[in-house]
Nucleic acid binder design. Structure first.
Length: 815
RNA sequence: GCCCGGAUGGCGAAACUGGUAGACGCAAGGGACUUAAAAUCCCUCGCCCGUUUUGGGUGUGCCGGUUCAAAUCCGGCUCCGGGCACCA
């Protein structure tokens, strides 16, 4: 067969399209697989990263379909987000038009790869119908107390009149207009992900089997659980008086209660209420107030870079165990959001506290002794034995922690607590192209959700987008509405949701037949059938945000009664990046390869084959033009050699014993490939080795000339390769076998049985010879033959040990 | 700084639970076919030494260990990639 990819690919793509070949069915008694590649942002054109992502997912989906599973393999569009607004600002195109035109274009590009997506389950996250249910979920979360409003300091660009994400701040300036970014206290909506911190952490165990360990480690670190002691520092009487008796004490948190006798000062965050009180009531010198103000104005990121810095507040607290007075400072390294915004400082055993104490000449008191000699030149942070610690002296750190916590609890002056680094998720964005937050501000009733029957709160089409301010807020009429409770004039919330909100539940939407899409976000029975996603495929860049939010949403939706599962993704494959000349393909570097051009020149099968063959999916993949040629060569060869097979309607029967050595070997190679095609789908997805096995099999077939063996070989190889290079395989399978070979094929163990085996003969572990012996040979005989084969190496030595490993080798230990 | 991951020919990579290192492919070199080119086919291909041939030594980032046997296990380093970044 002459190989002309253009015709073949067109033909089969049309066939799959017309026959709705890849729709899941609703027979929930059938065994299922839900295979999902992360949905793309419709930026305009597909790139090689997409090709890799969707080829991997498609191959897995096709594999399970062939094995008779009911397979859900959908695609959609993560279609809200900033680039659409940027296009509007730059070119005056409406974000909606821009987005949906891109979707149409990219859909065509993806279908030219022959991907086996369900056509009917496709949707865009910006569809009003999706927004409708999303807003309902938001309201249900609000009513459950999982949504709240608070003000926080955020990056603000005064020129653009908008909040900027951290990623949009470049060296302290706005990425678009280059103006310095300010820190502003702004109200916003937050989702209580911290409410699920412990479960999100615990359930990492359920994912241990199916997720890459580094992703789980990243999530665990991000959640950042730590156990410790929380207690109150009581202010000295003089300090209480200084603070007009407005403050009695403040809370601190420590994971090292064993070092508490080493406390020589306490430090407050610049935003701590006591600090603010001292400042607003002018209880500090002008100079100190100015210094603190300066500290407050530095954003979190810059503060982390800055050297340690602080100001003495001229107040004291009482050490809870020694009763001594401890000075209180304000310090730029103390975070207001964590552990109460205040710390006990132990310079002898904490590096930060040490650095600060040295700078300001504060006492450094040793309270732990261990193998590292403490000489006051640096902090020793390891555990050890307590010294200078009153009744606790002599205890080791671990038991001292327990005893000290117990002491605080008995005296009711402190408790054991668990803290998490995880913060609640701020979802407010001052942008147009997102899902409106369905809340209303009523002068009488306060903050109230929109009525469910009024959803969706849709975006107005008539907006001006100039990049200044929030277009919804500036719209002449949109935000004016009536209170859903009292019907008074009220104002709509003009913030829209973070786009991660959409991607946190889209995978549930796919589980449901579109005929239900108007009425429910997703159908519970369908979701329970299809979930969890059996295999999720996407880039590692989503290791924390998207994957953590999706886990969180799944748990929330479970608790809201929408679905029964705890975790969304049973197995996760994080694919490596596609590189060219050693670095990530990007327009700015000019090292991109256009998938369309490759498909035009070589066809989709070549692109798919190259991308799956060049590296295992988890690894980075270096683009290589001549290796693409090589992939194309293999397809041509596969097509050409099919002339050696004959047309038949079932797998040919072969009497293995009658075959020549070469034919036997070829069959063995073919069945090895078939075996491998089962093995690689168990989680590693090393398509590269499967393809190599098929190449070996084809090479071995070429070493023999039995047409029946050729035919059986093609029957099997086309089956094995179909997930990888579907077009050419369907074409040849149709011609030769009427497509009947594209279903489960039984492995014939007889081809692996051999009459002889080759043993390596090694001396002291070094290979000296090979011998071919009968497969049924006894150990004694094998050793005898082995020794003969290496007789020249044994002269003058005596054998002290003989090792025989069946099917592998003989090792002789000599002296 | 802390936490992960990785290192195998000129290149991408294989190697099941420790058991013949380099499968498969790319590149390169040589040859066949051709008026020529393309395409295709055949041969060689880790490094070093030797040779007419058979051959020998060495080799999986570095140093050491365990073992009859280590790319694989253990200890200590080096380099590269990624994540977090003052979380008390």
């Amino acid at each position: 067969m002459h190989y002309s990819p253009v015709e073949v690919e067109k033909k089969w793509q049309a066939h799959w399209d017309e026959t709705n070949a890849f729709e899941p069915n609703s027979d929930f008694s059938q065994k299922k697989k839900y295979i999902l590649s992360m949905f793309p942002y419709p930026s305009g054109r597909i790139h090689m990263g997409h090709v890799r992502n969707y080829t991997i997912g498609d191959a897995i989906a096709r594999h399970y379909r062939k094995l008779g599973f009911n397979v859900l393999h959908p695609i959609g569009w993560d279609s809200f987000g900033m680039p659409a607004e940027n296009a509007a600002i730059k070119h005056g195109i409406h974000p909606k038009k821009w987005t949906y035109e891109n979707i149409d274009y990219m859909r065509k590009e993806l279908s030219s790869l022959g991907l086996s997506f369900s056509k009917t389950r496709e949707f865009a996250a910006s569809d009003a119908l999706y927004t409708k249910h999303e807003q309902r979920i938001f309201i249900e979360m609000f009513e459950k107390g999982l949504v709240y409003q608070k003000s926080a300091t955020l990056n603000w660009c005064n020129t653009c009149q908008t909040v900027l994400a951290n990623e949009q701040v470049e060296e302290g300036c706005c990425w678009r207009c280059d103006n310095p970014v300010e820190q502003r206290l702004l109200p916003g909506y937050y989702l209580k992900i911290t409410h699920y911190a412990q479960e999100l952490l615990d359930d990492c165990e359920k994912l241990r089997e199916g997720w890459p360990s580094q992703v789980l480690t990243m999530q665990e670190n991000w959640i950042g659980r730590s156990e410790g002691l929380e207690f109150f520092f009581t202010l000295s009487d003089a300090s209480k008086a200084k603070l007009d008796n407005q403050f009695e004490s403040y809370k601190v948190f420590t994971t090292r209660p064993d070092t508490i006798f080493g406390v020589s000062y306490s430090a407050l965050a610049p935003e701590h209420p006591i600090v603010n009180y001292l400042m607003t009531h002018k209880l500090l010198s002008e100079d100190k107030i100015a210094q603190i103000k300066k500290m407050q104005s530095v954003g979190a990121r810059d503060r982390a870079q800055a050297p340690k810095e602080g100001v003495s507040l001229d107040i004291q607290v009482i050490h809870p165990l020694t009763g001594k007075e401890v000075p209180v400072w304000v310090a730029n390294f103390v975070l207001i959001e964590y552990g109460g915004g205040a710390v006990m400082a132990v310079p002898a055993h904490d590096e930060r506290d040490f650095e600060f104490a040295q700078k300001y000449h504060l006492p450094i008191l040793q309270s732990i002794e261990n193998s590292i000699v403490f000489d006051g030149s640096c902090a020793t942070t390891e555990y050890g034995t307590l010294v200078n610690s009153g009744e606790f002296s002599g205890l080791d750190s671990k038991s001292a922690q327990k005893k000290i916590i117990a002491h605080f609890e008995a005296q009711q002056i402190g408790t054991k607590v668990i803290n998490y680094k995880l913060r609640d998720w701020g979802i407010s964005r001052q942008r147009y192209w997102g899902a409106p937050i369905p809340m209303i501000h009523c002068p009488q009733c306060g903050l109230v959700p929109e009525k469910i029957e009024n959803l969706p709160v849709a975006l107005p089409d008539d907006v001006e987008i100039k990049g200044e301010g929030n277009p919804l807020d500036k719209h002449p009429t949109w935000k004016f509405t009536k209170c859903p409770v009292c019907n008074a004039d009220a104002i709509r919330e003009t913030d829209t949701m973070d786009t991660f909100f959409q991607s946190s539940w889209y995978f549930l939407r796919y589980t449901t037949d579109p005929s239900f899409w108007n009425d429910v976000p997703f159908d519970k029975q369908s979701a329970n059938y299809w979930m969890n996603v059996d295999q999720y495929v996407g880039g590692i860049e989503h290791a924390i945000l998207h994957l953590l939010y999706s886990r969180f949403f799944t748990k929330v939706l479970r608790d809201l009664g929408y679905v029964n599962c705890d975790e969304p993704f049973a197995n996760l494959l994080t694919q490596g990046m596609v590189l060219k000349d050693g670095s990530k393909m990007s327009k700015s570097k000019g090292n991109t390869v256009d998938p369309d051009a490759i498909i035009k020149e070589y066809g989709a099968d070549t692109a798919r084959l190259f991308i799956l063959f060049a590296a295992p999916p988890q690894k980075e993949l270096e683009w290589n033009d001549s290796a693409v040629e090589g992939a194309f060569r293999f397809l041509k060869k596969l097509a050409l050699k099919s002339e050696n097979a004959f047309v038949c309607k079932e797998i040919p029967t072969i009497n293995h014993d009658d075959l020549s050595k070469e034919s036997k070997y070829a069959r063995k190679k073919v069945y090895e490939a078939l075996k491998k095609s089962h093995d690689i789908y168990d989680g590693n997805y090393t398509f590269n080795t499967l393809i190599a096995a098929c190449m070996e099999a084809l090479n071995a077939l070429g070493e023999q000339d039995n047409k029946v063996v050729w035919t059986e070989g093609y029957f099997i190889l086309l089956n094995v390769l179909e997930p990888i290079i579907p077009h050419i395989c369907w074409e040849m399978s149709e011609t030769l076998f009427g497509l009947i070979n594209l279903s489960t094929i039984e492995i014939k163990e007889e081809v692996f049985v051999e009459d002889t085996m080759i043993l390596a003969v090694t001396i002291n572990g070094k290979k000296r010879a090979e011998v071919e012996v009968s497969a049924t040979i006894s150990k004694e005989e094998a050793l005898l033959v082995g020794k003969q084969s290496v007789s020249k190496w044994l002269e003058g030595f005596s054998i002290v040990k003989e090792i025989y490993v069946a099917n592998k080798l003989i090792n002789l230990v000599v002296k």
